[in-house]
Design a protein around this nucleic acid. Structure first.
Length: 470
RNA sequence: GACCCCGUCGUCUAGCCUGGCCCAGGACGCGACCCUUUCAAGGUCGAGAUCGCGGGUUCGAAUCCCGCCGGGGUCACCA
């Protein structure tokens, strides 16, 4: 039996969780859950100037919101690089003792000059190896890599990718000031955390051969690698803020259900035949890293919205109420204390909104009287004739034996018939009165949900408004 | 510039490994129609890809080979 799968997501807390990072996290999580392995969260905060605790909280929040739970990681200590310096130091010592690493005291100015020369000659800069055999006792610690041959990265998504050693150089493991570099930390962390599969962004593919050489120098087994393509913006360059909303936080705030975002992100680059909609369980069951596309994918907010609406439309009512409530409160309104009634209101709204923000916006009349009437509609509907019709509707509704959707509909249909009108003539009038707008959920449902008393208040107010303008 | 990755409808993709079932399928978006008390939702139909380009191999290529072009990523004592 193969050793248990262990993967990790290692964000750098220099900002909020980006959708690209979220997708990488998702693929790791799916891989771990599919293989019944462990998902580790590790914080790469060696860049102290840009890393903040607030960002760590934000990233943790975003991951939890997405439902990507980790088996190991914060708040348990030992999963932040800044807590692991002793481990890096120890590994550096080992490399030095075995002769696989050496000190270098080349001044930065010299390196810069050499870099400049290499650039002019149109070559990739490589450290000259000047200090390789000087046996220095201090300075920056460099990894001694083989001069000949090549290192092959057997990528699970890309297949074998070969890098000639002549293109690589003796890179720095530990800086002169004693701090370890990112590439070194990653190797040591992945090794000491027994990571079996490194699933990360494509932008790390070029670093991989250097890291593999470090594993080998340390005499550790090399993990499997899978480099996921980047998420692109409309112009096909790496998705960034200038392409619009990119943080998970922003999508949450705009009222997109976490399940919809997860579904969208999963489908962006990964596929299972023609299937577009997946439950969590299906995702876990069907996910296979081999079906992850190797090409970059443009982020399509419109398709995300389609999924968002689909989830709003189909999710459980109680769950929807739970998700919608904070959005109702966020605009200063209050959902009715009667939960089934609140859910019934949402049921009339859910297929009309792409996000929870939109849903609340379109349904605010359920929680407050319309403050104004749509100007154009008021002009054509709130007339003398409109006032007369509203009066008739009010009278019939007052006398109706009950105030159910069916009863209200009977009143409207009968009146329509008697007046020789079309249903739309009365419906739009009532709609404007009850909601202030010309577009809303079915008006009989709206009236029933708003209740007899409040409905009549709104109809009377509209009649008064009509009489005023007349 | 060097190295590496990528290249199927506007977008996400299936198909590519194991050539023919593909003059290329699905989804989003778009258009039309149907349904209809408005708006949505739903249903039906439709437009949309000479499979980046050019050579080869083959009876036959989106699928195999070569070259080119285009896009992206990486080249730090950043992460």
């Amino acid at each position: 039996m193969a050793s248990p799968v262990r993967v990790r997501f290692a964000p750098s807390p220099t900002g909020h969780l980006h959708v690209g990072g979220a997708r990488t996290a998702l693929f790791n999580w799916l891989f771990a859950r599919h293989h019944r392995g462990a998902f580790v969260l590790r914080i790469e905060d060696t860049d102290r100037s840009r890393s903040t605790d607030e960002n760590i909280v934000a990233i943790v929040d975003a991951l939890q919101w997405l439902g990507l739970d980790w088996d190991e990681g914060p708040p348990t200590p030992g999963y932040r690089q800044t807590e692991r310096f002793a481990i890096y130091r120890e590994h550096a010592q080992r490399l030095l003792a075995s002769g696989r690493a050496y000190y270098c005291d080349c001044p930065p100015e010299l390196l810069d000059r050499e870099r400049g020369v290499a650039q002019q000659r149109g070559e990739t800069f490589r450290y000259s190896g000047r200090c390789r055999d000087r046996g220095l006792g201090a300075g920056a610690l460099r990894l001694r890599i083989p001069t000949a041959g090549a290192t092959v990265v057997n990528d699970l998504i890309h297949g074998p990718v070969t890098f000639e050693h002549s293109q690589l150089d003796d890179w720095i493991l530990v800086r002169t000031d004693g701090t370890p570099t990112y590439n070194f930390c990653v190797v040591v962390d992945d090794v000491t955390m027994s990571i079996t599969h490194v699933i990360r962004g494509d932008d790390h593919l070029s670093n991989t051969p250097k890291q593999i050489l470090c594993y080998e120098a340390l005499d550790y087994a090399v993990p499997e690698f899978a480099h996921v393509s980047l998420i692109l913006g409309k112009d096909r360059s790496r998705l960034s803020k200038r392409h619009g909303a990119t943080s998970v936080q922003a999508f949450r705030d705009s009222g997109i259900p976490a399940d919809a975002l997860v579904n969208y992100l999963a489908r962006l680059g990964w596929s299972h035949g023609d299937q577009e909609v997946f439950s969590r369980a299906e995702l876990v069951e069907l996910f296979d890293i081999k079906n992850v596309a190797s090409s970059g994918a443009v982020f399509d907010a419109t398709k995300l919205e389609w999924l968002s609406q689909l989830y709003l439309k189909t999710m459980d009512g109680a769950r929807l109420a739970e998700l919608a409530e904070p959005f109702v409160r966020a605009v200063g309104l209050t959902p009715p204390p009667d939960r089934p009634r609140f859910i019934a209101m949402l049921d009339t709204l859910r297929e009309r909104a792409k996000t929870l923000v939109e849903l609340v916006e379109q349904g605010r009349f359920y929680f407050e009287r319309p403050a104004a009437y749509e100007a154009k509609a008021a002009q054509t509907l709130l007339t003398v004739e409109g006032a007369r019709r509203l009066g008739l509707v009010i009278a019939r509704l007052e006398g109706a034996p009950e105030f159910t959707v069916a009863a209200i509909e009977r009143v409207f249909r009968a009146l329509t018939e008697e007046l020789g009108l079309k249903l739309v003539d009365l419906a739009q009038l009532a709609r404007l009165a009850a909601t202030g707008r010309t577009a809303s959920p079915p008006i009989f449902d709206v009236l029933a949900l708003v209740g007899r008393e409040e409905s009549l208040v709104r109809l009377r107010r509209a009649r008064e408004a009509a009489e005023r303008t007349a």
